[in-house]
């Protein structure tokens, strides 16, 4: 029996589970191999194997060790331990970490109109696709959506977003290549107000978190947003590529510190990558995860649920 209740959203859960199937099979298989039908106290070498499994999921050394330390404490002196029991312990630990970060901010949407959502991240994580999918999602929820092509750097980024706008029936504001992203944003905010849009989703250029001048560029955009609409940007979604390793933590720290991200979107979770770095990020920075991307179609972005995520991992 699961300690969580995710039954309200069976559709989401099923799809997330499908997306994570490869991961799940691999990890539970490994776990079974390590623990087998153990009927003796857990050994150091088993713990080390478990550590490898967690690290293999990109959870990272520090977080993996912390999780296993709890397992060590809880199993101390206990004789009979099955693989399933140990798995449950690890699972619950991860559940607690993710749950804690989700609770920091339950994610109630601002009622300000237009609501302004920034989408940021390093290069190639899937920002434009995420903006397209978010536009679709908000549309489905009955909102009027405007997207803003503020990535004026990458070749054809605006063209790519325009195709997404057409697909999802959202309006788009764009300018020529090389335009000042803040100017595009300014235009988009005026348009969103004039056309009485419910939500403005802003696609930004990919930027490595180590490039100060590019991070400052987003700060400037935030200032302009705040000047034009009260409380804007209401959400700053940071997109993480699920294949990212330990550098994800550096990225998250920098984006969190300089831009103040309000939520994480984990993209590309439909491969074999485990996306375990989100657990390390949740543990250290307590930034809630909002959505996961599980495919290339417009509807392939689903709200994140810690319960479903952990259950699907089936550790």
């Amino acid at each position: 029996m699961s300690i969580f209740s995710y039954q309200e959203q069976p559709g989401y859960f099923k799809r997330l589970k499908e997306a994570l199937k490869v991961t799940k099979d691999e990890i539970s298989h490994q776990m079974d191999q390590v623990m087998g039908t153990a009927d003796s106290p857990i050994t150091e070498s088993q713990l080390e194997d478990l550590e490898n499994i967690l690290i293999g999921a990109d959870i990272g050394v520090e977080t993996s060790l912390a999780i296993l330390e709890r397992v060590r404490e809880e199993t101390r002196g206990r004789k009979v331990l099955s693989g399933a029991q140990v798995r449950r312990m690890i699972r619950d630990q991860i559940g607690v970490i993710l749950q804690a970060s989700q609770e920091v901010d339950p994610g109630t949407r601002s009622t300000t109109r237009p609501r302004v959502v920034f989408v940021v991240g390093v290069n190639g994580v899937g920002k434009t696709t995420t903006v397209g999918k978010l536009a679709h999602l908000f549309k489905q929820e009955g909102e009027e959506v405007l997207v803003c092509a503020a990535d004026t750097f990458r070749a054809a980024a605006a063209e790519q977003l325009a195709i997404w706008a057409e697909r999802t029936g959202a309006d788009i504001v764009q300018q020529g290549a090389g335009a000042d992203p803040s100017a595009v944003l300014f235009d988009a905010m005026a348009a969103a107000r004039a056309r009485k849009k419910d939500v403005l989703v802003v696609d930004t250029a990919g930027r490595l978190h180590t490039k100060t001048h590019l991070m400052e560029e987003v700060q400037k955009m935030q200032r302009i947003a705040a000047r034009e609409v009260e409380g804007a940007p209401h959400e700053v979604y940071w997109v993480l590529d699920a294949t990212t390793g330990q550098n994800g933590l550096n990225q998250a720290r920098e984006f969190f510190k300089t831009i103040g991200i309000t939520g994480v979107v984990v993209a590309k979770l439909d491969g074999t990558a485990k996306g375990g770095i989100v657990i390390a990020i949740a543990r250290e920075l307590k930034i809630p995860i909002r959505y996961v991307g599980i495919g290339e179609q417009a509807e392939d972005l689903i709200p994140f649920s810690a319960e479903a995520f952990v259950d699907s991992l089936d550790l």
Binding site: I55, G56, A57, D58, V122, N123, G124, L208, H209, T210, D241, T243, T244, G245, Q246, N247, G248, N250, Q251, G271, T272, A273, K274, G276, I277
Partner: peptide, 30 residues
Amino acid sequence: MTGQDAVNSAREFNQRLDLSGVILTKMDGD
């Protein structure tokens, strides 16, 4: 910046296509 999954994709691409080399991108980060 790829994590542990790098082995899976590299192995699969190599088995199917017989790669001759690799370009490692985004090395200007940390």
